[in-house]
Nucleic acid binder design. Structure first.
Lengths: 129, 129
DNA sequence: TTATTTAATAGTAACAATTACTACTACAAT
DNA sequence: ATTGTAGTAGTAATTGTTACTATTAAATAA
């Protein structure tokens, strides 16, 4: 079995992700971490992000804009994606666990979880701010 | 303004997509279309799939497995994705339009639509079949 | 029908996001 | 200290997708 070994880079990746709430892509995170670790490798960022996802310490968001985004908040919650600027916002609404049962009635298999992405235009892009 | 011109390739792409219900990727569709058009180009498949999406004649599914999938059924409906084999199944359940209003209460912008993907293990992978 | 215009194509190159590889480094358990 | 192994930087390779270019073919007009 492989024992996990401490690394400053991984710590920094997680700390940095926890500090921001804009659900950055691997590349965006890479850019901000380079301020602290000027010669960190993009591969290191990807590898550790995936490792942290496997450990259940962060979660990956695939909202359909090409690149995956990452979120340090692992509690089940939904996201609102602006079709105009691509910004991803947390949606502080209760998770609807009941819809799994709803889906289960029609599914050809065992339903375990679900993801929801809401799409629209954010206040910034609407000029309401 | 650009007028749309008929092409056998596009027709075949749409016909082929309508004939199957396994939500193929562009590459999978490319493979089956090559039986009829042995020298069709993968770029042609991508270009026409995206064009058909823009025209609203098909829809694109981004279920998080890397490649986009395509669905000739444009009516709003949800999908069940097997985490084991990657298969994508239609979920014949009513669309829950009301959850847009729910999300709207907490969203920092104008909510227009949503997507839901249910994840789990399909009957084939469970051995229930 | 032929000629003309222009969208669509095949083939290939380019691209972006991500992963794999390799030699080297650093942690940690003898 | 030595040694085993996880982690790293740097780079190459892969994958999914889009862009480019010369050519083909569909629609329109003569």
């Amino acid at each position: 079995m492989k024992t996990l070994k401490y690394s400053r880079q991984r710590e920094s990746i997680k700390t940095c992700l926890m500090a921001r709430h804009d659900h950055p892509t691997a590349d965006a995170l890479y850019t901000s971490i380079r301020e602290e670790f000027p010669n960190i490798s993009l591969g290191t960022v990807y590898r550790n992000l995936n490792l942290l996802v496997e450990l259940g310490e962060i979660q990956k968001l695939t909202c359909g804009d090409g690149a995956d985004h990452f979120d340090a908040d692992t509690s089940p919650h939904y996201h609102f994606v602006c079709r105009n600027c691509g910004h991803v916002y947390d949606l502080p609404m209760d998770p609807m666990d009941s819809i799994n049962q709803l889906a289960q009635k029609h599914a050809e298999g065992q339903v375990e979880s679900h993801t929801i992405y809401f799409y629209g235009t954010c206040n910034d892009c609407l000029g309401n701010n």
